[in-house]
Amino acid sequence: MNAKAAPLLRVDGLTKHFHTSKNLFGKPTHTVKAVDGVSFEIGYGETLGLVGESGSGKSTTGRLILRLEEPTAGQVHFEGQEIGKLSSSQLSPIRKKLQVVFQDPFSSLNPRLRVGDSVGEPLQTHGLVSGGSDKRDKVAALFRQVGLDPKFMDRFPHQFSGGQRQRIGIARAIALGPKLIVADEPITALDVSIQAQIVNLFLDLQEELGMAYLFIAHDLGMVRHLCHRVAVMLRGRIVEMGSTEQVFANPQHPYTQALISAAPIPDPDREALRRRIPYDLVPPPPGAVLREVDPGHWALSAA
């Protein structure tokens, strides 16, 4: 990480509590700490993988960065600017640079809108197209960039396969030339034979456009392939973070070890030899802090 210049994204003590029940007077009686003091950075053009069980807070972290949820505490700095306090009009120029790709492109695309219009919509909203034919040209270019034939622009989402819909979702996300894309389980819902296509597309686009990704996923194999660094979340906290190499070759936290040992390997000989490391999903102790075990490699340990 570069200490001199501000990183693309810096998340500082990000916290989100949900009140799951309230008493008679509306006072919260039970609080879920979905995200509990999470801090990390993402550099320009870098991919950070965020992994963990369902309910670990990884998706909520993504939503907090996008300001789809308001944090209970903590800050999100984008290109050095704290975005938590910005009004929606102040946020508008940042929205261009900060985009999202969801798991299910079918539910994130308007079913009644032709896909070309869905992709072109952000261009229009931000006044980046001069007219109808300009918009069509720009959308056609985006279609080609994500490997879709522009002649499909006038079709509706239901006329596409899952992989193609995810390509449309990605075209929409890159339309404004973002610096960071939060990708929340973008390949989980896709067929196995299509997943590699989409992962390759993410890699191609990163090389062409220099975008950074926050890649939220539970497929450790894909995370290892795609991400420069990895953060492992457990019960709202990051328990380990480091380069992909550090975390996978030398996992420190027992939960990371359990997670890596649990991932099935498509090789019967390796599977036969494999030993799984069990881990009870106990939340990290309250006083635990991240300590640097190696330069850039952090693991949670008791205070």
């Binding site: 550099g43 053009g45 034979s193 997943q195 590699a196 890699l203 090389e207 392939h225 992909t244």
Partner: peptide, 30 residues
């Protein structure tokens, strides 16, 4: 099988250098 990420033990992945586009291997897609 070929489209799956390399899962071999000895696989070494480069770390990221800020500001420098890194060539990552592509998956063998169908």
């Amino acid at each position: 099988l070929r489209s799956l990420p390399d899962h071999s033990e000895g696989r070494v992945y480069e770390t990221h250098t800020p500001g420098q586009a890194k060539k990552r291997p592509r998956l063998q897609q169908i």
